[in-house]
Design a protein around this nucleic acid. Sequence first.
DNA 1: TCTAATT
Length: 505
Amino acid sequence: MYIKMATLANGQADNASLSTNGLGGSPGSAGHMNGLSHSPGNPSTIPMKDHDAIKLFIGQIPRNLDEKDLKPLFEEFGKIYELTVLKDRFTGMHKGCAFLTYCERESALKAQSALHEQKTLPGMNRPIQVKPADSESRGGSSCLRQPPSQDRKLFVGMLNKQQSEDDVRRLFEAFGNIEECTILRGPDGNSKGCAFVKYSSHAEAQAAINALHGSQTMPGASSSLVVKFADTDKERTMRRMQQMAGQMGMFNPMAIPFGAYGAYAQALMQQQAALMASVAQGGYLNPMAAFAAAQMQQMAALNMNGLAAAPMTPTSGGSTPPGITAPAVPSIPSPIGVNGFTGLPPQANGQPAAEAVFANGIHPYPAQSPTAADPLQQAYAGVQQYAGPAYPAAYGQISQAFPQPPPMIPQQQREGPEGCNLFIYHLPQEFGDAELMQMFLPFGNVISSKVFVDRATNQSKCFGFVSFDNPASAQTAIQAMNGFQIGMKRLKVQLKRPKDANRPY
DNA sequence: TCTAATT
């Protein structure tokens, strides 16, 4: 791509435009360059930056603004060397933040003091963030090296909702220098009863924990003050996964692809699948991770089967090659692709429409309405075009979405050999046989699944049985799924007691 | 009761 850039930049016109507006390429080269940027290997055509230039992190950017929209805002403070909106590697989704480097260090300082926390971009409910990127303080030999903020940032819970930043500061200032103190607030500005407090050092933070955790109960709080280190990124990821699993009642196979935000959900799935996979590779594995990763991959696989796959492709300036979904998810041997979702009859899930699912806390754009320029909005439009906006109509479409719809094979109720049959308790109420099977397919060949229902009410009794064709799969499933949290409950997964063997389901 | 995000 640099070759192309060089060619373009060598023309006088391009050269001139580079030096005046900081744009790193012509529209023709934008496909690879993420907006405003340029080739470092091409210095004669490119503005130089100071050696002590500061790379800034910009946060709280509305997701419908790209580099060209942001440029005017920042150009005011000096010539821009590079401006890059952060996008998700796989989905191309705008992450709501950017990196910005000015040619001159002074410009960065001016921009920071003029903009940081000073202005709120349309649709955002918190002010814009303009501060040196994390990479700046750590790597360089620069004067003040800061410890990673993760080690000195505290989460404070069980605050009174009336308490302000100042109140919290007063409580914590005795233990060290507070660099940051933020009350968490909802979109309405109401306190969520918790806060983050960042000290200059780990020791100060630890001192505050020792002195304050559990030390008092705020009026109106349900238990004593919580003071602990804030979640790490990994922990946050886990937390989100867990919430998602709970809210979605475990991945309704039908509702997701057709809801208003189906495309969004799928983007999220893919993103999370990739995330989970990388987390798992990092050696951080728990039952949640295993199952979530497996489920996500299934969603991604479903997506690749045709439905909404095309609209998912980023539309402009994408750094994401087409078809990226496949490499994004390392394959776990799983038969799900052939007999997973697609074999489920629509009637099998007595689930609400996707809109209802997503109304329960998952919103693609919490603070703004998407614009037509937004890739996701286009994705949605694509889904509409493909499957039709009406939910029931989607059922008619599904057979078209899959080239060869697998026939619905009525399941034989049969048990596996000893050691292959699992008893599962604390299933979600809405789980039927199909969902139960779906949940355990990632671990092997499921030869039967049965949720017990109350004969009078036809309601699930929230327990059931799953049989694999080999004991190893059964053990893997126990390892991964026993204790797995769904909503408020944790699954109990254990071998079925052999004495029941003579009693067919 | 874990922000909004750090290539």
